[in-house]
Every structure is written in structure tokens, then in C-alpha cells.
Simulated scan of single mutants.
Amino acid sequence: METKNTPLLTPAFRKKIGDVTIHYEDFHQPNPEAQVLILIHGFLSSTISFRQLIPYLTDDYHVVAIDLPGFGKSEKSKRFTYSLANYGKLVLSFIEEMGWSNVVLVGHSMGGQVALHASRQDGKLIDKLILIGCCGYIKRAGTPIICCSYLPFFSWGLKQWVLKKDIKNNLSGVLHNMNLVTDELIRDYRAQFLEEGFFDSLIRLLRHREGDLKPFELNSILHPILLIHGDDDQVIPLTTGKRLNGDLKNSRLIVYKDTGHLIMEEKPKELAQDIKNFLSLPGKKKAIQTPV
């Protein structure tokens, strides 16, 4: 992993969108013409997953990272509908309220599906999508599991099960380079598990999350899309990235060798350069798919 020498202070803010308050980090760019990049984390993650990537982007772009409701430091609301479509709607509402346009959505894992939903709902606010280790083709949870989630103490049991698991082993499963699993990394990724209401939000996500977008829905998305996938991704296999590349009309796929699911931790400099290269291309031109 390469780390940029210049540390960044984290400019944290909170904003109410509809009936839920979100935490976001806004790395303001002095150039008023700088394009806005909104970073959307994946499942069981938060803005922390972009910490190595952000310093490589802030010189050229107005970078904003958000915690989705239920995750990180955002509200663990009991009123919010924790579906991918509603997450997409929230991202669009956030963009509108901030007065931005021509925005690039950068989604990791589940955050990629959120970005795709936003693209389908209102493409006018979005210029391009960058999907990193994007999940896809995951079906809705089965009825028995959803019914079990209403049983007394289900949330307590889920919390005990997760907290007893070895976080180090879990992180090893999302990284190719095991040397990156440090005490600091473990502490930072474990922190949100201790947030009050976190596991209740996970249960609501289990109940509300619809299945991932189907091929015909993906085929309707016309924004230029860059897919980036690790060849050693044990969470979302490379076959998913290849299938998404086939179902999306205007996409290209880049595969990183010897890289796992947390590409932003393992290859931040290379990832930033590929993002910059992609964003320098004309926005509406049919992208050429990269053979892998």
C-alpha cells in the first residue's frame, strides 16, 4: 500500500435529509469549477474505507464522503427505509440540497448498487459512475430469515455473534495483502459496531433490502461507468464484475492483480490515477470495454 505523505484534516459535518440525519466529510476544493466526487461506502463499512484514497483526489476534485444511514456516524433511524432504492434517493436529495450538478458517484461494494439506483432514478444530476468491487445479483433475503428478525432478542443475538468474531480474520478476508491488517485498522473498522443502534439498523436493512438490480434494469443505465475489481476479491468475485460489465451498456472494466475487496486500502494511488484517467474522457461517449 502506498500512502500520500500529506495528511488531511477530516472536515466532518451533519445534515438532515428528509427525516434522517447523515454524517459526511467535505474536502472543499478552492476551485469552484472542480467536479464533485461523492464516495459511497459498502456494507459494514463507513467513510473510513476511503481514508487512503481521499488524499490522492483532493488536489483535483471536490471530494465528499458520506456515511449511509445506519452506518458510521450517521443516524441509526427507526423511521428510515433501509433499501438500496431509498439509499439512492437519499444520495440524490443530498446532491440537490447541496446545489451540486455534474456529480461523479464513487461506490464501493454495496455502495456501487446505491450509485446505480441513483443513476436510474435521476440521471440529470450525475455525470459518471465509478464502481469499486461492486456487488451484484444478490437476491432479497428469504422469508424465514426476515421473519426470524422479528423474534425477541434477535438484535442482541446478532450483536453477540458479530462482536465475538475475530475482526482481524474478517479484515484478512477482504485484503490480499495481510500485512495491512494492523491494530489501527482493526480498531477503526470495529468502532461502528459499538455505536448505539447499529445492529438494529442492520436488522432493518435485512428486512428492507431488495435484491440487486436485474440485468434488464442494469441495461437501462446509460451513464459512462468504470468498474474496478480485484482479482483476489473473496467477497464479491471477479465473475460478478465481468457480468456487470456485460449487462451495463456503457462500461469498462479494469482488474487489479493481487488485490482483494478493499481496493482503496491496498491500491489507493493506482486507483486514484485510474479514476482521473476515466474522468478526463468525454462524458457521453460510448466507453470501450477493457478485455481482462
Rank of each mutant, 00 (worst) to 15 (best):
Glu97Asp: 10
Thr21Gly: 06
Ile167Tyr: 13
Pro69Lys: 01
Leu222Phe: 14
Leu8Arg: 03
Leu163Pro: 02
Val63Asn: 00
Arg243Pro: 05
Gln29Leu: 08
Leu194Ile: 05
Ile167Thr: 13
Tyr24Arg: 05
Phe278Lys: 00
Lys165Glu: 12
Thr290Asn: 15
Gln234Tyr: 02
Glu33Lys: 15
Leu8Met: 08
Leu68Glu: 06
Met98Arg: 13
Ser49Lys: 09
Leu90His: 00
Leu158Cys: 07
Gly260Met: 03
Lys267Glu: 14
Leu202Thr: 00
Gly99Glu: 04
Pro215Cys: 00
Thr239Ser: 15
Arg120Glu: 10
Pro7His: 10
Ile130Asp: 06
Asp166Pro: 02
Val104Leu: 10
Gly136Ile: 01
Ser93Pro: 00
Lys214Ala: 13
Gly197Ser: 03
Val162Cys: 11
Lys168Ile: 12
Leu90Asn: 01
Met1Gly: 14
Arg187Thr: 10
Phe216Ala: 14
Ile132Leu: 12
Ser220Trp: 05
Phe43Ser: 08
Val103Gln: 08
Ile186Val: 15
His28Val: 13
Phe216Thr: 15
Leu175Met: 04
Pro11Lys: 02
Lys242Ser: 14
Gly111Trp: 03
Lys165Thr: 14
Asp188Leu: 11
Ile66Arg: 03
Tyr82Pro: 02
Pro152Cys: 02
Glu210Asp: 06
Val114Phe: 04
Phe71Leu: 04
